[in-house]
């Protein structure tokens, strides 16, 4: 079979599998897990656009996730907007705040940027916990489920298709961005900002642009999250979660969309598989972070590029 033919067949097979998953899975628990996977996938693909390409670690991605979630919830509850409107709007809200935050912070050196985003994330979480409008520490309840006409998406099985659809669109956009002039320039930032400026490229502008796109993804993920769980708690949008998303990116491969996808899936499903003892699992998780960042700088995808592993795959006749 020709390479391109084989790719097309593979794509079709994957597409079919994705579409019939809710029919194959019977348990609520697993379909909820898959939906959660999808949400983290969006967060991580978004994070890749700023952190994966330019190397600026955005530790506030989960704060923007929260901004999107609360924005969407409040737009629906207080203004009565349908989900189909509050979804893109919360993405835009997150993006606009992202641009505002990005403009001053992206001028800083990498470490200062990381600390700045940590501080911002913490302040945002503090606001979520203490403001009246966000429901305080108890969070936001009774967020309406999406509906079209009379059909209500109140089960995880139907909601799955909403998430799948959004993921499809956002991944295509991410792919287009990566293979455009912006993608190239962003990836070059890590190599030489000086050379980029000398080529007439306004590096600050494209950094802020990337940050805005990244927070847009976080906002969308937030909206999807809010209307799926119909209840959001400020504790979700924490520094710990921010580290988790960063780990998802790096375990896959920072700088690649497929890396982000793999990482988010692995790190959503793995913890569930290791559920036997929460405390021991968390200790292992801590060590896992050390191992991933230290010994797998190119993530699992990078591992497949390792010469020894390439030989192995070749021998299996898969290339």
């Amino acid at each position: 079979m020709l390479n391109s033919e084989r790719n097309r067949v593979l794509t079709i097979i994957i597409a079919v599998i994705l579409i019939i998953i809710p029919l194959l899975i019977k348990s609520n628990y697993y379909i909820r897990l898959i939906n959660l996977c999808g949400i983290y996938l969006l967060l991580t693909v978004g994070l890749n656009i700023i952190t994966g390409y330019t190397g600026n670690p955005n530790m506030a991605q989960t704060a923007f996730w929260g901004i999107g979630a609360y924005a969407s919830g409040l737009l629906s509850i207080k203004l009565g907007l349908p989900f189909w409107l509050s979804l893109p709007l919360s993405g835009l809200v997150a993006a606009m705040i992202g641009v505002l935050v990005g403009i001053p912070t992206l001028k800083l050196k990498v470490f200062h940027f990381a600390i700045g985003t940590i501080a911002f994330g913490q302040i945002i979480q503090l606001f979520f916990k203490n403001l009246e409008i966000t429901g305080g520490p108890a969070g936001l309840k009774s967020i309406p489920t999406p509906k079209i006409g009379n059909y209500v998406f109140d089960s995880d099985f139907s909601y799955y298709y909403i998430i799948l659809f959004v993921i499809f669109i956002l991944i295509s956009l991410a792919y287009r961005l990566e293979h455009s002039k912006y993608g190239r320039a962003l990836k070059a930032i890590k190599e030489s900002e000086l050379a980029l400026q000398m080529l007439g490229i306004n590096v600050s502008y494209i950094k802020v642009l990337a940050f805005g796109v990244s927070t847009f993804y976080a906002g969308i993920a937030g909206s999807l999250y809010a209307h799926l769980f119909t209840y959001i708690s400020p504790d979700t949008f924490s520094f710990f979660e921010a580290v988790k998303v960063l780990t998802m990116l790096y375990i896959g491969q920072a700088g690649s969309i497929s890396g982000a996808i793999i990482g988010s899936i692995v790190l959503t499903i793995l913890p569930e598989a290791l559920r036997f003892s929460k405390v021991y699992y968390m200790a292992i998780y801590g060590i896992g972070i050390v191992i991933i960042f230290a010994y797998l700088p190119n993530g699992l995808i990078g591992l497949t590029r390792h010469p020894k592993i390439r030989k192995y795959i070749k021998n299996l006749g898969l290339r």
């Binding site: 002039k181 190239r184 890590k190």
Partner: peptide, 13 residues
Amino acid sequence: LFKELTVLQNIMI
């Protein structure tokens, strides 16, 4: 140079 990018990408940028 953008050492980790390809030769072609360096020019395209």
